[in-house]
């Protein structure tokens, strides 16, 4: 599959919590074609960040681990790589941007130093060359005043600027895959619009693939080519962005789209999904959404539906669609 950058197969990632072992990522499979943006969307705690951390090899062995699956990046299984091989890939071929830029930058190093670091580590270029590239990157992410920014420290910059710096660092070694975990959630809408615009244009200029994690369906509609909806550690629906928004299939996806207030489409009452997300430590063999689903049937309480292909390119895990796929 020369056209696939990332192929995640049957990923199972567990965390050890006070309540017991939980499957933060439970048999998740998806792939990212070259040059495409795949959005992972779902509510808090459904396992989005756990997917990203698994791909990056950043699950801390003391609190959890990957128990099953393959993560093929350009054909290589990341789970079989040695530590130093993985480190070589990280920040080079695959980069990640985190939700809180402040916590992932070193407060006592200059911005310039932090952009130069991966360049010098991975590209083996001179300090002078690295500085030139760092200044270009600062310009690229639209800050301007590159020299001044180069010499400043994280606390001297705003949240929006820091997020741009994180993007600059992530792009330093021209990665083929950029993983962005809620890159705009902590930012104001006007700054969010700037960052999304930047990510979109960078992706086009560089033919880069992107895994963008968000809980905001508005952001998904703006940037995604393909959407994956997660619920309680499982992928419950996925599909090309236009189809998925036009014709969502899973009752949870439908509910999410209806429950969100949308500007200039005011309704007297919002649709609500009753109840709340289940506790991952006490799941039973059933559709995990069954407690909240208006269309729940007897079988939903007994057996977890598998994810199946529909004929329009969408995939859904719901008993309502089981016959469709056998046609």
């Amino acid at each position: 599959m020369g056209n696939t950058v990332l192929d995640v197969k049957n990923l199972l990632t567990q965390y050890y919590t006070n309540g017991g072992v939980i499957k933060a990522v439970d048999d998740v499979s998806f792939s990212i074609p070259k040059g495409q943006t795949v959005c992972l969307v779902g509510e808090s705690g459904c396992g989005k960040s756990a997917v990203a951390m698994s791909i990056m090899g950043l699950i801390d062995g003391g609190s959890g681990g990957i128990k099953n699956g393959e993560i093929l990046f350009e054909g290589k299984d990341l789970l079989k790589l040695k530590k130093h091989e993985l480190r070589q890939l990280r920040g080079n071929d695959i980069s990640m941007i985190f939700q809180e830029p402040m916590t992932s930058l070193n407060p006592v190093l200059t911005i310039g130093g932090q952009i130069m670091e991966p360049l010098m580590e991975h590209e083996l270029i001179s300090k002078k060359e690295a500085k030139k590239r760092a200044l270009e990157l600062i310009e690229l992410v639209g800050i301007g005043r590159a020299e001044e920014i180069f010499n400043s420290y994280p606390h001297q910059l705003s949240g929006g600027m820091l997020q741009r710096i994180m993007i600059a660092i992530a792009l330093a070694c021209s990665p083929n895959l950029l993983i962005a975990d809620e890159p705009t959630t902590a930012l104001d809408v006007t700054i969010q619009a700037q960052i999304l615009d930047l990510l979109r244009s960078l992706k086009e200029q560089r033919d880069m693939s992107m895994l963008l994690i968000t809980h905001d369906l508005g952001v998904v509609a703006e940037v995604a080519d393909y959407v994956i909806v997660m619920y309680a550690g499982k992928v419950i629906e996925e599909g090309p962005v236009v189809e998925l928004f036009k014709n969502p299939k899973h009752p949870y996806t439908k509910g999410l789209l209806k429950a969100k207030p949308v500007i200039n489409q005011r309704q007297e009452e919002l649709y609500t999904i009753a109840g709340q997300v289940p506790n991952l430590a006490t799941l039973t063999p059933s559709c995990y959404f069954s407690e909240r689903c208006e269309q729940c049937m007897a079988i939903c309480k007994e057996q977890m539906p598998k994810i199946n292909d529909l004929d329009n390119g969408q995939r859904v895990a719901c008993w309502l669609y089981e016959e469709v796929t056998t046609v």
Binding site: V189, T190, Q192, A193, L196, D216, L217, G218, V219, V220, A221, E222, A224, V241, V242, F245, K246, L257, K260, V262, I263
Partner: peptide, 10 residues
Amino acid sequence: LSAVPIPDPT
């Protein structure tokens, strides 16, 4: 208002 993302990809 124009910065608010709207959940409609079309």
